[in-house]
Design a protein around this nucleic acid. Structure first.
Lengths: 208, 208
DNA sequence: ATCAGATGAATAACGATGTTATAGTCAGTC
DNA sequence: GACTGACTATAACATCGTTATTCATCTGAT
């Protein structure tokens, strides 16, 4: 039974991985169970026995997307000493992760299916991916690099700015080439942090 | 022929309206051509003769959504004298419009179909909905209520904050009841404007 | 070692969807 | 009054998600 469980678990991760690959390469329309079965060398029934139905697979992808986002943010902040630099690194990692898998990002933050209400566990995973940002803000508050006291509220604002810019960019509403869009994103992060910077050292005006 | 054209144009608008209603009431999954044909008293072929295919209908809904968003913003800013108040009114109207039709908002800012690249006309409509915000910022710059000079850049940041907060709220990432969420949104608008407020009058700390 | 029982996957079938092909209907024209 | 043309309704097709049925494989006890 252990071998069976390992096999099914392996097949489950393989299905989630391959589904993410199809999603990134061909989009949500091409993510059919038959295509997925063909690419993983199994049948459509694997999804039903392992995830219940297609929505179960999408829910697993939702969880996996947030888990990877949280891991990417954790890895980005790791080893960066300066708290403000760590915060900026988090912001850049957020954008890169989103742009690397736009369809997965859409699945995570959009509502492709109206009846798709993430279960509490999925919501917990989603909220967990948000913790590295709160931790980085708390580090800044502890060192005085940021002021304001409310780490949760500050982190939420930084998240909203990052997510808003990334979402607008993915929707095609940010003009300019890749370098210009990256610069606009950096500027947005600077703008977002202005209300929380200590008044002693006024912020340098953003470039461009 | 004029009567025919008027009839078809009327049928086209009726299809777009009814599709938006189905989208709001039952979600994207229930937006099928047969259901739409049943509710409008016609057949599935109407979509093909009037819009080419279902994507054409979605593109028309995309354009209509942005057109209504722009109209709502225009109407909101109309008759508000104080430039900063007008800007804040725009921000509130943006959120209300988005929350009133979450699925339409998702269609506008998400990418439900990977091959759905809005045609230039649709992009023009989308960009036009953005102009009232730029105009309101320009009014603030003219009166000195905001400083910085670059109206486009300032408006983009305000848009990113509004869109980011609304998108996070629609995705269920903003905790609290409706009043708390509205207050968080208001605070976010205040934070967003801080970098562009004149230094003479430091901003009052946001409530909560 | 063998066999009953069970668990999971493969095959086939069903209803529904987007789309296309075909036939029908009505306006305006000579 | 037949005709052309545009638009619509009906029917058929391929494919999708899903389910029912059958088949294979593994487990555990004798």
């Amino acid at each position: 039974m252990a071998a069976v469980k390992a096999h099914t678990a392996d097949l489950a991760t393989r299905l989630v991985d391959e589904a993410g690959r199809v999603l990134s390469e061909e989009g949500a329309v091409s993510l059919t169970l038959r295509r997925l079965a063909g690419r993983t060398g199994t049948s459509t029934m694997a999804v039903y026995t392992l995830f219940g139905d297609k929505q179960g697979l999408l829910a697993a992808m939702y969880r996996e997307g947030y888990a990877r986002l949280g891991a990417a943010l954790d890895a980005a902040a790791l080893g960066v000493d300066d708290p403000l630099t760590a915060l900026a690194t988090l912001g850049m990692a957020y954008r890169e992760t989103a742009l690397a898998n736009p369809h997965l990002y859409d699945l995570m933050f959009g509502r492709p299916v109206p009846s798709f209400e993430p279960d509490p566990e999925a919501k917990a995973v989603a909220d967990a991916s948000y913790r590295p940002l709160v931790a980085a803000v708390q580090r800044c508050l502890a060192t005085g690099a940021l002021v304001g006291g409310d780490a949760e509220r500050t982190a939420l604002h930084l998240w909203a700015v990052s997510h808003g810019m990334v979402s607008l960019e993915l929707a095609g509403h940010i003009q300019g080439d890749a370098a210009q869009r990256a610069a606009l994103y950096t500027d947005a992060l600077i703008y977002a942090s202005v209300p929380f910077l200590p008044p002693e050292q006024p912020p340098s005006p953003p470039r461009r």
